[in-house]
Write a protein that binds this DNA or RNA. Structure first.
Length: 276
DNA sequence: ACGATTATTGCGTTCTT
DNA sequence: AAGAAAACAATAATCGT
């Protein structure tokens, strides 16, 4: 399969079932082939891969037993079942750290869903949160902040950049909580994050501004010969898109371009002026 | 704590209708 | 002429070191 992303022409990567653009994070296709575990295999090695599908995004990796709620069971027996279910659920998340994990994973799932990011990001974010918890980085910092920061950090390491603002907008944490958590993880866990390449923002911003791929390529060219040191990468990307779009029939105002990048028009202008 | 970058606000200017 | 957009300046806030 050698297709490219319909939104941004970026390259695609297939991860289990969904196919994801490596540039903009768009989930492109549902692969009809299930690359999940085999269910029919009979020899010993293969049999280890049976069972419920594992996922990092549940604190018990998806391995759990539920006590059903049958409507056909009535009266005393029904109440007994309810009590068993309650006890079972409590036993399942016994420790405090496990309870935190449940809450954090739920939040991570929610944020990842709201940002329509691929499952791989979700699972990595959950794994990252677990690492942070193991290093007891949570002490004195907010759980929600760590959940949001984990998603943000994984986005950065996977080169599907989201701005802090975009994450905070849907998270149950504010900017400071995310920053505190992110700083702690970056310091003590040593996240493999370099400076953000403004190119990562181009495809997404271009579609948000209704700009054709041709203009995106023009912006990319502008970006290639531009010294960007110490400048807000999303602002730089927006400036290049604006520069590429002006003088065309797809003209975009500075205010609009700045808005999709979550910066002010002044910031956009500062790099736009350095573009000549 | 410091220096550089960015946000915010306000204002006179330029371009379009 | 009116209104929007781009430009400019000053100050406050913020980030990386």
């Amino acid at each position: 399969m050698s297709r490219s992303c319909p939104e941004c022409q970026g390259s695609l990567a297939t991860e289990r079932i969904e196919t994801v653009c490596t540039d903009c994070g768009l989930v492109v296709a549902d692969d009809p082939l299930d690359r999940g575990p085999e269910w029919w295999a009979c020899d010993a090695d293969e049999r280890e891969r049976t069972g419920a599908p594992l996922t990092r995004s549940r604190h018990d990796r998806g391995l759990s037993t539920e006590i059903g709620r049958s409507t056909r069971v009535k009266g005393r027996k029904r109440r007994r079942l309810a009590r068993m279910r309650r006890q079972h659920d409590r036993a399942r998340i016994a420790s405090k750290t496990d309870r935190n994990k449940v809450y954090a994973f739920t939040e991570i799932r929610r944020v990842v869903g709201q940002l329509s990011l691929p499952y791989s990001v979700r699972d990595q974010a959950c794994a990252l949160f677990s690492s942070a918890q193991d290093e007891s980085l949570l002490r004195g910092r907010s759980l929600e902040g760590f959940a949001a920061a984990a998603v943000y950090a994984v986005c950065r390491t996977n080169n599907v950049a989201r701005t802090v603002g975009e994450v905070v907008a849907v998270a149950r944490a504010d900017r400071n909580e995310l920053r505190a958590a992110y700083a702690a993880m970056n310091r003590d866990l040593g996240l493999p994050v370099g400076p953000i390449d403004p190119r990562e923002y181009l495809p997404r911003f271009a579609t948000e501004l209704d700009l054709p791929p041709a203009l995106e390529r023009r912006a990319r060219a502008l970006l290639d010969d531009l010294a960007v040191s110490g400048k807000n990468p999303s602002g730089v990307a927006a400036a290049c898109l604006y520069a590429a779009a002006r003088d065309t029939d797809h003209a975009v105002t500075q205010a609009d371009a700045a808005a999709v990048a979550d910066v002010t028009p002044v910031t956009l202008r500062s790099t736009y002026r350095a573009l000549d």
